[in-house]
Simulated assay, not measured.
Amino acid sequence: MTQIHVAIAILYQDGKFLCQLRDDVPNIRYPGHWALFGGHLEPGETAEVALLRELVEEISWAPATVSFFCHDVEGDVLRHVFHSQLSADVKDLVLHEGWDMQLLTTEDIRAGKCYSEKSGDVRPFGSAHQRILLSFIDAI
């Protein structure tokens, strides 16, 4: 089985975590679910370079540095997970990919769901993304 490598970011500010409501389309993993920002590694890219590129593509912002947190394996996907302080104001970020984004609380993450004004309803967390965030929250 070919492993798909992706790099994702835990971006935090004032005890909250920046999450993306993924597009509600059937050909992606976790459609219409809350998740972390990031994406696939291009050939020859390191996970860190891919993550910074993906953040600029998805929200027009990337931190100066990121720190490695863990690897997470789910079926054929290997996630390279990094973390960084979100130094930008969320209102200054530009969402280029996904349906919505917002800073979610630890309570939202533990509940496994959160309301989105853009979708007009409560949306679930992608299970891998919730597991990764809970692991990070427990570690800090």
Rank of each mutant, 00 (worst) to 15 (best):
E97C: 13
P124Q: 10
V122Y: 15
V94I: 02
L78M: 15
R123Q: 14
M101T: 00
D100Y: 07
D89K: 11
E107R: 07
L86E: 08
R79Q: 14
E107S: 07
Q102I: 00
R110F: 00
Q130V: 07
D121S: 15
L103Q: 01
V77D: 11
Q85C: 12
D76R: 15
K113C: 09
E107V: 07
V94P: 00
Y115I: 00
H129G: 04
D121M: 14
G75D: 12
L95T: 02
M101C: 11
G120R: 11
G75W: 00
E107I: 06
V94N: 03
H96Y: 05
K113Y: 00
L78A: 12
A88F: 06
E97V: 12
A128C: 10
Q102G: 03
L95V: 05
D76W: 03
V122G: 13
D100R: 06
L78H: 10
E117G: 14
E117Q: 13
D108R: 02
I109D: 01
E97N: 08
D108P: 03
L103I: 02
G98S: 02
Q102R: 11
R123T: 06
T105R: 02
D108C: 09
I109M: 05
A111D: 09
Q130E: 06
G75V: 06
F82G: 08
G120K: 13
V94S: 05
R123W: 04
A128E: 04
C114S: 15
G112C: 05
D92K: 01
R110C: 01
V94T: 05
V122T: 15
T105N: 05
S87I: 10
R79T: 13
W99V: 10
V122A: 15
G120A: 10
V94G: 03
P124S: 14
S84V: 09
R79K: 15
A128I: 04
E107D: 11
